[in-house]
């Protein structure tokens, strides 16, 4: 089945099986490998992308469900050489160690800040509950998201 998705502003059109997961469409058809597969069981959020601006777990969605939609991956956040404010805040606050959760974490944070522009610490912790990090203990991730929120 042909699936047309605007990925990071670029029109993509690929013939895929209906059972193709969105994350595999992005990684294998569109060659955007910034989005990671962590748990593959809807729990960890490493695969989080924006679907029409809202965070979704791309391992738990079919590409056909996103047909006609707009998807943003980590590669599409910063249009030029300058980092997106949330990416910059992650760097400034040392909000990653191994980095495997980071793409999903940043996308979830971008979506959260769209919905709650100036979140409290509780808002951030609850808002990121769908994203697991095995390294950082979350402290610096929360600090980065709060800082990015305060800068908006």
């Amino acid at each position: 089945m042909e699936v047309a998705i605007t990925v990071n502003g670029q029109a993509e059109r690929h013939d895929v099986e209906p059972r193709t997961l969105l994350v595999h469409y992005l990684r294998e058809e569109c060659h955007r490998t910034g989005t990671k597969v962590g748990c593959d069981t809807s729990s960890c959020g490493a695969c989080t992308v924006l679907l029409d601006g809202e965070s979704v777990k791309s391992c738990t969605m079919l590409a056909v469900q996103a047909d006609g939609a707009t998807v943003t991956t980590i590669e599409g956040l910063a249009p030029g050489d300058e980092l997106h404010p949330v990416q910059q805040a992650f760097q400034d606050h040392h909000a990653l160690q191994c980095g495997f959760c980071t793409a999903g974490m940043v996308m979830a944070a971008v979506s959260l800040l769209e919905e709650i522009p100036e979140p409290t610490e509780r808002d951030v912790r609850l808002g990121l509950e769908g994203n697991l990090c095995r390294c950082t203990g979350y402290h610096n991730i929360v600090a980065a998201v709060l800082a990015a929120g305060a800068k908006r």
């Binding site: 809807s42 959020g45 965070s55 979704v56 969605m61 979830a108 979506s111 509950e129 769908g130 994203n131």
Partner: peptide, 9 residues
Amino acid sequence: VGDNQVRHR
């Protein structure tokens, strides 16, 4: 229910 990503879908 679940998390933000789950509630978006």
